[in-house]
């Protein structure tokens, strides 16, 4: 029985909630129990945004993540705020294009990826969230390509379906980053 408690955090506009929704849909497609809980309110307008995604074999109790098993971190304020909360042996995936701090905790695994740089190099700077997600999926060994594609189909509105391919590419760029 495994439970992934994934906290995604960054600035409003980085696609934090969307990346969370994609993760939740992946869980749903894999027949897991899932929950997705956003931060809401005035802080959404350009401030920090975060989102709690739980993917579990068990029924999900509280949708609020107090101690994430995985932290996907896309700005400095959330790095400082959330790293201390990550559970022991947990994972932190951080966008090293935006966060120049080194993680000091020895009991968790820090994975750095210059996601914003990679996304910019691929002509889609706003898809850093997908690059981050790809890297996380690899680290967690979660889902496979077909699951990712099905989840993208569920989350990308029909009128934007042409965006599926570039999103997939961005996820793969993150997944294959070494």
């Amino acid at each position: 029985m495994t439970t992934h408690s994934i906290l995604l955090s960054g600035f409003g506009g980085q696609g934090i909630l969307f990346a969370g929704k994609l993760l939740a849909y992946m869980g749903l497609i894999m027949d897991k129990n899932v929950s997705w809980l956003p931060s809401y309110g005035p802080e959404m307008r350009g401030g920090t945004a975060n989102c709690n995604v739980i993917i579990s074999d068990d029924t999900i109790g509280s949708p609020i993540i107090n101690n994430p098993s995985t932290l996907i971190c896309m700005n400095k304020p959330s790095f400082n705020k959330f790293v201390p909360m990550v559970e022991k042996n947990g994972l932190v995936v951080l966008d090293s294009s935006l966060i120049d701090i080194k993680g000091e905790r020895g009991d968790i695994n820090f994975v750095e990826i210059p996601a914003t740089q990679i996304a910019t190099d691929n002509q889609h700077p706003k898809l850093a969230n997908m690059v981050m997600l790809g890297r996380t999926l690899k680290e967690l060994n979660l889902g496979d390509e077909s699951v990712v594609i099905s989840a993208l189909k569920k989350t990308i509105p029909n009128r934007k379906i042409e965006m599926l391919e570039v999103n997939k590419k961005a996820i793969l760029a993150g997944y294959n980053f070494t």
């Binding site: 929704k21 939740a24 749903l28 129990n33 899932v34 929950s35 997705w36 809980l37 956003p38 809401y40 999900i60 949708p63 609020i64």
Partner: peptide, 10 residues
Amino acid sequence: DGILGQMMEP
């Protein structure tokens, strides 16, 4: 409540 209203589940 605000959590049940804002959260997504299947």
